[in-house]
Amino acid sequence: MATAEIAVDRAALFEFLTRMGDNTLILGHRVSEWCGHAPVLEEDIALANTALDLIGQTQLWLGLAGEVEGKGRNADALAFLRDAAAFRNCLLVERPNGDFGQTLMRQFLFDAWHHVMLTALTKSEDPRVAEIAAKAVKEAAYHLERSSDLVIRLGDGTDESHARMQRALDDMWSYVGELFIADDADRAVAEAGIAPDPASLKPEWEAIVSEVLREATLKAPTSAYVHKGGRRGVHTEHLGYILADMQFLQRAYPGATW
């Protein structure tokens, strides 16, 4: 299948694709850490299925990233053999799981962005990007529906669950902002019509979040401080621990298969 190459810097496109794939990879890994530990069986299964969707999407994004890069690296090589500084996920997805409420709040804030982003990407000028987005957006819609539902139920729940959800929101809030800040790579793919300008996603994200928070009786923090760096490879200490766990097998036994 011949695909018309769009005039865009290959490095910028690779950067964009690893940002998409690393977000889903790291969040997928984080969520999978709950497997066998969730408060109730149904939620345990739901978390595992969400993780599975995210890891599946990772294979598509990182698979394409490897193709675009053209150095013979496939999705597995990119996932298992890069060091922390080469990862391009936002800091939000590497936040520790905390309690169930924190995991859900992180998921909700991400899902709202993810759904808006994927919806925009279905109109990408690059058909390879558009077809992955068209596939993933249907899954992300279910993720958003579930996390919105639970944020509302727990936020507008008991005093204890409300307090925990408010604390989770306060903790996670400052890690979302970097998703809306453009750099040169973002501008290059936006100009080529491959992806939207990150800032353009904010109004819709805010509309979803403010509505769900209102139903959940939760208050968005007013602080404008933004933690950033993940998207250019400057991570918190948490990513190193995730990678140590996730990459151990391939690092210790290179090329191991089963």
Binding site: A140, A141, S148, D149
Partner: peptide, 15 residues
């Protein structure tokens, strides 16, 4: 009946 991510409809449905 697929999820469509539309929050307004969603919030109403949940409410």
């Amino acid at each position: 009946t697929a999820a469509d991510g539309r929050s307004l409809a969603l919030a109403r449905r949940l409410a």
